[in-house]
């Protein structure tokens, strides 16, 4: 069964459509990459899924039920996690508070302990203000915050865009492991080749439409995809 089904989705921030009839689905345990050039509508698609896009037409279904009218905070409670590209932590809160502030976690203390075990760097800095941490630590905190609710779907908006090259492969490894803890992944990514390498399927957006889609290895081998969208060397 599909965790997420996006059906003929159009919409944008104002009158102008940025998405023009996009259809994408994410199956249980799948990582699906959404690639495309700047301005193709990738981040807008992510915002539509989590409920931050003001105007949408078409249908978004999560675990079978239509969530178009569900407010953002309720989508989070239902099991959709989101890591925005920038501004993905609360800088004036401590590391621990960044996790405690997430609503809808019944076993909060135990969940924080579990996440500190996964991200040991955070455990040692739990009383540090998040805004004073390094980029890599912030990134870990952003994932930990999004994982607090044990989401079944996690939407990642260009997770490697602001990172130093050394952190990029570490981040892709972390994403690759997400299905094993029960989270399917919608991965918005500029580094299409590396993203497809850890994905099951891929979708390439162009001008707010799906230009190509298919299994990740098929897209990686496709000459037209390589020429137009992926770049020869990624």
């Amino acid at each position: 069964m599909s965790v997420l089904e996006i059906d003929n989705l159009s919409g944008g921030y104002s009158e102008v459509n940025i998405l023009n009839g996009v259809t994408v689905s994410v199956g249980a345990g799948e990582i699906v990459t959404v690639a495309g050039t700047n301005g193709a509508g990738k981040s807008t698609l992510a915002k539509a899924v989590v409920g931050l896009l003001p105007r949408v037409e078409g249908e978004i279904r999560f675990e079978g039920s239509v969530i178009n009218a569900v407010p953002t905070e309720m989508r989070a409670n239902r099991g959709i996690g989101y890591v925005p590209q920038v501004a993905n932590i609360f800088p004036s809160l401590t590391v621990q508070e960044n996790l405690e502030v997430v609503v809808g976690v019944t076993d909060q203390r135990q969940r924080i302990a579990e996440l500190f075990a996964v991200f040991p760097a955070l455990a040692s800095r739990r009383r540090t203000r998040a805004g004073s941490m390094s980029g890599g630590e912030r990134q870990q905190l952003a994932y930990a915050r999004a994982l607090m609710t044990r989401p079944r779907l996690i939407v990642l908006d260009e997770p490697t865009a602001a990172l130093s090259p050394a952190l990029v492969s570490e981040t892709f490894e972390r994403i690759r492991a997400l299905p094993s803890i029960g989270a399917s992944v919608l991965l918005i990514e500029q580094r299409a080749r590396q993203a497809l390498a850890i994905s099951h399927r891929g979708v390439i957006l162009d001008g707010g439409r799906v230009a190509m889609e298919g299994p990740a290895d098929t897209l990686l081998a496709d000459e037209r995809a390589a020429n137009l969208y992926l770049g020869q060397h990624g």
Binding site: G51, E73, V101, V103
Partner: peptide, 17 residues
């Protein structure tokens, strides 16, 4: 304090404005 830092991120963290 989370809403003061970032209202959109607060909402995706399940916080009702």
């Amino acid at each position: 304090r989370a809403v003061a830092d970032d209202p959109a991120l607060a909402r995706v963290s399940g916080i009702s404005p």
